[in-house]
Design a protein around this nucleic acid. Structure first.
Length: 469
RNA sequence: GUGAUCGUAGCUCAGCUGGUUAGAGCGCCUGAUUGUGGUUCAGGAGGUCGUCGGUUCGAACCCGAUCUUUCACCCCA
């Protein structure tokens, strides 16, 4: 009869209790931080209309969107020529004819859709955080799944640079709290990158310059040099640019170094950008962010098209690991939905990678969250009712109480408590004179005591040290 | 989407160039021992060798397809 093979679909996974406990712990910590900075929670549906997601991520990402097949007689409107075209490779067009919904690909576009729909009732600037799963039909690898959580915070409806500064402060606060002492927010600026492209004489090819730049830390310098040679950039200018990139961009010297580079390239450095940089540095400093936890890095480009100003990426401080978060300023995220002039800043925590890293580096410690504080069990059925009454009394007082429902052998009871990391075991037994006695045992040091059922609560409350390890 | 790669008990893996009843450690279950679990001892259950098809007298082992894993590219968290 059992002929169904128990199996998961590609790229998705189950989360066992230990993992869920850890993720919930991380999420509650993130939520606490978001709320501390004035963000409010938002949730949007897993399903969005195709038109909402259409084109928002570029041609290549389109194939990574999970489409939902229409219900009912969805083939009725398909013509013979549609079939032929689909068979000849025009599968995208066909897909659009039989699907009108898809699973969300990220949280940013649904957020833009939400803001656009509710622009009349939202008070701007609007700040929200959102922690929900998203789906991508990517080919899975270690640490890359087809279903994963994103944790985003966005502020929209203001172009004040205090927003960027607070995002940096929020990043640093959370990551240091998590134990990433060496975490560093890398900061760059899209307009500065365009200026560099222009200074190098690449203004027409700024886009491909960004792409090259984005993978610089992965591929090394050679492809970039080859690209610049190909574009006819003089070796002098290239050298000046590399120097700018590799110099330790200390905030106080940054403006000067940019001016130097502009002089060598014989172009004018837009003063507005310099002013923005200086202002951001002032704000970040005022927020008390240690200078070791952020730096300017002009090799940071970020792939996403919609960023227009400052961009961020967070280095975990653990060598060999990629970024654990990113974000930036966008000036027109809602334009596609007909709402112009809303500037905003968004950041994202790469929670899957953060969890992987924390588990790998043993940053959670080795004690799994106890399934309960106390386990009640009885070896004689006559004590069952008193045990249940006791359990409910403990629960009323907030003590996590589990009742052993299996074969009531001491060996079983203690083994169960051990595997679930329950620190205290209480065995209800009939005493010599027919009354019920409770044998309380603390597993950590095998301390044991016998009390009356009514005394269990008071005894636990008086001895809170039992819970500490 | 392109090109590789992996797949043997719950877990980690053995299994010599295809040859008769496929093994180990850990875990699990039972019993004994132990102050009521953690130690030790004895015993036990569990696998149509990812799936389907092919080659062969014979396939865990060779070939094909498919699914899953991992890796590079694309892209990205």
């Amino acid at each position: 009869m059992a002929n169904i093979k128990a199996q998961l679909a590609r790229g998705v996974r189950d989360f066992n209790p230990e993992f869920v406990n850890r993720r919930k712990w991380l999420f509650s910590l993130l939520e606490e931080a978001f709320r501390k900075y004035g963000f409010l929670p938002l949730e949007t549906p897993a399903i969005e209309l195709n038109q909402t997601l259409q084109g928002a991520y570029g041609e290549e990402s389109d194939r990574l969107i999970f489409r939902i097949l229409n219900s009912g007689q969805y083939l009725e409107s398909i013509t013979d020529s549609d079939w032929v075209a689909a068979k000849n490779g025009q599968i995208n067009r066909f897909t659009r004819l039989v699907t009108e919904k898809a699973l969300r690909y990220d949280l940013t576009v649904p957020f833009a859709r939400y803001v656009s729909m509710n622009r009349g009732s939202l008070i701007f600037p609007f700040k929200r955080f959102q922690m929900q799963p998203v789906w991508r039909a990517d080919r899975p690898q270690r640490g890359r799944y087809r279903e994963f959580y994103q944790c985003d915070a966005d502020l929209i409806g203001s172009d004040c640079l205090s927003s960027e500064a607070q995002m940096v402060a929020l990043y640093v606060e959370v990551l240091v709290q998590l134990g990433f002492k060496g975490a560093c927010v890398r900061i760059s600026h899209r307009k500065l990158l365009h200026f560099m492209a222009e200074a190098l004489g690449l203004s027409a090819g700024a886009r491909s310059f960004m792409v090259q730049l984005d993978k610089l830390d992965k591929t090394g310098k050679e492809p970039m040099s080859a690209y610049l040679d190909e574009q006819g950039v003089s070796h002098e200018l290239q050298a000046a640019w590399w120097a700018l990139l590799e110099s330790n961009l200390h905030p106080s010297e940054l403006a000067e170094q940019l001016h130097d580079f502009a002089r060598q390239a014989h172009v004018a450095l837009p003063t507005s950008i310099v002013k923005e940089l200086e202002t951001l540095i002032q704000y970040i400093t005022a927020l008390g962010v240690p200078t070791t936890n952020y730096r300017f890095d002009l090799s940071l480009a970020r792939g996403l098209d919609y960023y227009t100003g400052f961009i961020f990426e967070v280095d975990s401080g653990i060598t060999g690991m990629g970024s654990i978060g990113g974000g930036g300023r966008y000036e027109n995220l809602t334009a596609a939905f007909g709402v112009e002039g809303l500037s905003g800043v968004g950041i994202s925590f790469g929670v899957e990678r953060i969890l992987d890293l924390m588990i790998e580096k043993d940053m959670f410690g080795d004690a799994p969250t106890p399934a309960a504080y106390i386990l009640l069990a009885t070896t004689s059925s006559g004590c069952m009712e008193q045990m249940l009454t006791c359990a409910q009394n403990l629960r009323t007082h907030g003590i996590h109480t589990d009742i052993f429902a299996g074969d009531p052998k001491p060996k079983k009871i203690f083994h169960y408590a051990e595997t679930r990391n329950i620190p205290v075991v209480a065995i209800f037994k009939e005493g010599p004179s027919g009354d019920t006695l409770v044998h309380l045992k603390r597993r950590t040091d095998s301390e044991q005591i016998s009390v009356q059922p009514l005394e269990v609560l008071a005894w636990l409350q008086a001895d809170k040290t039992w819970n500490s390890r």
